[in-house]
Each structure stands twice: as structure tokens, then as C-alpha cells.
Computed example of a mutant assay.
Amino acid sequence: MAEKATIYKANIQLADMDRQVYGDYSLTIALHPSETHERMLVRILAFCYCAAENLVFTRGLSSVDEPDLWRKHDDGRILEWIEVGQPSVERLKKASSQAESVKVFAYGRGLDIWWKNNISAIASLPKVQVQCFGTGELQAACAGVEKTMNLSVSITENMVYLSTAEGNTYTLGLREMRDL
């Protein structure tokens, strides 16, 4: 019998000073059995960085035809296709053909190798923007992951300040991959 996803709840007070986006969000996140807390946290942060009307989590790892998040227009067009991790160039080409904009929030071991092996192919895809989180910062912030989370997220100058209800604060930087 296959393992089921574990459900997490995140109540987020968001203040994105870079985009002038402010709001309260109640997210329900399904943690796939093969997914790490680190990946789930990147999905939550990607949501915060892209917060907008009609932005939703998809079936993610459970579907090869969908990104981790997307924002669709009311007419069904995909405005933003948002990937987490180190997607293949073929996947990004497919996303570019279906969406107006493609964002990748990269992280994890082997990130520099993935980037080195794919930089020219990704650079040829004008709709694709790749950003990354630092591994140490992300791993530290995973200490704040709980089944129910009350988070305050402030974003300014591509830095995220993540505070938990327990009083823990984590700082994470988001960089363009060209900065590696």
C-alpha cells in the first residue's frame, strides 16, 4: 500500500516590500512521501515570492504535467509556471511553450553542477528565470517546520525574514543563478 501525503498547514502574514504585496494566507500543503521538509519550505517561499491572485499549489510531485505552483488567468492561460528544485531543460522547454513566464526556485546539493551543465540551454529560454536559495540558510530554516505553522514572512531586497510563532527568526537570501 502506497504511503499517503502528510498534510501541513501554514498561516502566513506576508509583507513583500519589493513588490508591495501584503496579505494573510492560509496554505494547506501536502508533503509527498518522497519530499523533504527543505523542498516543502522552498515551495512555501516560492508562494510568498510570487503571491498573487490565482496562484495555487498543484499536484506537484504527483503529476509530471504540472509545476509545483502556477498562476492561471481566468480564461485558463498559464501566466506563471513555477518549479522548485533542479528541473530538466526539457521540462523548462515544455513550461516555456505553455506559460507566459517560468520561474525556478533552485536549491540543494549539486546545484552548482546542475547549473554548470544546463546554463547555456536555460539561457536560450527567454521566459525562464532561475533563482536559488543558499543551502545552509535553508537547512537552518527547516528547524521551524511544523505540522501547523504560524509564520511572518517579510521580503525586502530579495532577502526573506521568516519568523515563527515560537519566536525563531531565519534569514534567507534569494539570488539570481548568474550570481553563482
Rank of each mutant, 00 (worst) to 15 (best):
M1Q: 11
A2R: 12
A5H: 01
T6D: 02
Y8G: 03
A10W: 05
N11D: 11
I12H: 07
M17K: 15
R19K: 15
R19Y: 01
D24G: 06
S26G: 12
L27N: 10
L27H: 09
I29P: 02
L31N: 01
S34L: 11
H37N: 15
E38A: 13
V42K: 08
R43M: 03
L45N: 10
L45S: 09
A46M: 12
A46R: 12
F47A: 14
Y49D: 06
Y49V: 09
A52M: 14
E53L: 14
E53M: 12
F57N: 05
T58N: 06
S63P: 07
V64C: 00
H73G: 00
D74H: 11
D75I: 07
L79F: 09
L79P: 00
E80H: 14
I82P: 01
E83G: 09
V84F: 04
V84S: 08
G85I: 03
P87S: 04
P87R: 03
S88W: 02
S88H: 02
R91H: 06
R91I: 04
R91P: 09
A95Y: 04
S97A: 13
S97P: 00
E100V: 03
E100L: 14
S101E: 15
K103D: 00
K103V: 00
V104D: 02
V104I: 10
F105K: 12
F105V: 05
R109L: 10
R109Y: 07
L111F: 07
D112A: 14
N117G: 09
I119M: 13
A121C: 02
A121Y: 04
I122E: 07
S124F: 01
P126N: 12
G134N: 15
A141C: 10
A143H: 06
A143P: 03
G144Y: 00
M149A: 10
M149C: 12
N150R: 08
N150H: 14
L151A: 07
L151F: 02
L151Q: 02
L151V: 01
E157M: 11
N158K: 14
M159L: 05
V160A: 08
T164W: 00
Y170H: 08
Y170I: 04
L172G: 04
L174E: 02
L174G: 01
R175E: 05
R175Q: 10
R175K: 14
E176S: 10
L180K: 15
